[in-house]
Design a protein around this nucleic acid. Structure first.
Length: 440
RNA sequence: GUGGCUGUGGUGGAAGGGUACCACGUCUCACUGUGGAUGAGAAGGUUGAGGGUUCGAGACCCUUCAGCCACCCCA
């Protein structure tokens, strides 16, 4: 006798039951449609990559979270993908014939062995859209405009995209004279400004052994008004990368405005840092402020990444939507459209008795042939039981084919939401049900 | 990865150390050509797992796993 195995899920992973899948499909559908409206095309890549493809791309902290995926007896060193940008870069490097600029989107699971929490899972979907092969700030701006379109269409009202530039951060380090080895610490500290305030950041820097003099210089910079880009340019006069970064930001926001993005939705934040090591230019992060739920997207320009896979380096920029967080929030606030049903099934065809079963099956198959999602009942049970089932499933329409109907060559159509019933001639079956579904 | 909190049948909750209870849900039956109602009944847990203390543990201790929160990091 086999011993029972306790059914359990691996840490940080979850099943998506049908009800949940309907919601996910809705969100993903919105995102997909907008991606395509902006000219992005789908791409799929294997969930496994060679370890060498992934290693050395994300920085040491992130790298620890990569799942090893070697086959017991296999010879290849494999890993579960950690994000979608690195696989994209690999694809672009392997397929030089792709017409540039290459715009693709990918909505697929990635794996990170982090400690799970609400809205943070070890297996989660990323929704990425990237543009490869242009250095134009218009590409970055288009990404930002697209983020806004998607969030608006999902029903979010208040959000703001924070913009910064890696070049500015680099210049900030140069200007203040931080030892290169301490740069990551510096960035980490700065990034917390909003959260822990100036004093907190100062303490953090002191702990990171950044000299008092350096700290003073950094605060001198941070204190500059963010909207006065000229002041920044002035400070960075002898640090051309910094000026370049500022210019890029200026251009990016100008382009975004040309695409109808409201000025107050863009916030240049020279203290915003994104962790991934491969970013080289503008970086962005969209924060939803009402309701206050924090960062829902993150992205930026990574002009060097493809060059790690190919002699022909190509500039690239893109964003990733935190779709899991979006779904969690939409669940909490019930932001799904009211017509998002409980089931995909439109019609339930009841079976009256053995004599009438063939008639019911014929009706069901006719509806299915007409592309109407239809279920039939399998056993010979009382009508009441069948209706109870349809009702519990949330199926909107029920068809009854009993002796009376068979004799008159009609069927009875019951609308479970209203309780209304009507007789329909067999010949008009599909047509009438279509009408009914459209009005629902 | 670090720290804290939590862990009881499918779900939500209850049980002052003495051998698990309630609600909802599920299933069956009745109401028998029509559901979400009602009535009757049933199944389902050894209290996340493992060990210990005790005459005796869901309750105390240890270990472990998981979830949640904070940190880290990030989507």
């Amino acid at each position: 006798m086999a011993t029972l195995v306790e059914p359990r899920l691996p840490r940080g992973m979850r099943d998506m039951l049908p009800q949940k899948m309907l919601q996910r499909r809705y969100v993903i559908g919105v995102v997909e449609r907008v991606f395509e409206r902006f000219g992005f095309e789908p791409l799929q890549t294997p969930v496994l990559e060679l370890q060498q493809t992934l290693l050395g791309k994300y920085g040491p902290d992130a790298e620890k979270l990569i799942y090893d995926a070697r086959h017991r007896e296999g010879k290849e060193d494999l890993a579960l993908r950690y994000d979608l940008s690195v696989p994209l870069s690999r694809v672009v490097a392997m397929n030089p014939e792709l017409v540039k600029p290459f715009k693709r989107y990918q909505i697929a699971p990635v794996w990170r062995a982090e400690r799970p929490q609400k809205g943070r899972y070890r297996e989660f979907y990323q929704c990425d859209a990237d543009i490869v092969g242009t250095s134009s700030m218009l590409a970055d701006a288009e990404i930002v405009a697209m983020i806004f379109t998607i969030l608006s269409e999902l029903g979010f009202r208040e959000f703001v995209t924070k913009l910064n530039n890696r070049k500015v951060l680099t210049a900030l380090g140069e200007y203040s004279g931080v030892a290169p080895a301490l740069l990551p610490n510096l960035y980490r500290a700065i990034d917390k400004l909003e959260k822990i305030g100036q004093d907190g950041v100062r303490e953090e820097m002191q702990r990171a052994e950044i000299s008092a003099e350096t700290i003073a210089k950094i605060f001198e910079l941070i204190a500059l008004p963010v909207d006065d880009l000229n002041a920044w340019r002035e400070k960075f006069r002898v640090y051309p990368r910094g000026v370049e970064g500022i210019n890029e930001l200026e251009q990016l926001t100008a382009f975004a405005r040309d695409m109808g993005v409201q000025a107050e939705r863009l916030q240049i934040d020279l203290t915003m840092v994104r962790g991934l090591e491969y970013y080289t230019g503008p970086i962005f992060e969209t924060v939803v402020t009402e309701p206050k739920i924090g960062s829902l997207t993150g992205g930026g320009r990574y002009d060097g990444l493809i060059g790690l896979f190919s002699k022909n380096s190509l500039p690239a920029t893109g964003t990733s939507f935190g779709i899991e967080r979006i779904i969690d929030v939409m669940d909490e606030l019930n932001m799904y459209p009211p017509d998002l049903g409980k089931t995909v099934v439109d019609v339930f065809v009841s079976v009256f008795d053995a004599e009438r079963r063939a008639a019911s099956l014929a009706v069901a198959m006719e509806l299915r042939a007409a592309n109407i999602n239809t279920e039939v009942w399998y056993d010979l049970d009382a009508l009441g039981k069948q209706l109870k089932y349809a009702s519990a499933r949330g199926i909107p329409l029920v068809i009854i084919v009993g002796p009376d109907e068979a004799a008159a060559n009609i069927v009875t159509l019951r609308d479970l939401s209203t309780g209304e019933q009507q007789q329909i001639a067999r010949g008009e079956l599909v047509e009438r049900i279509r009408e009914k579904l459209e009005h629902a």
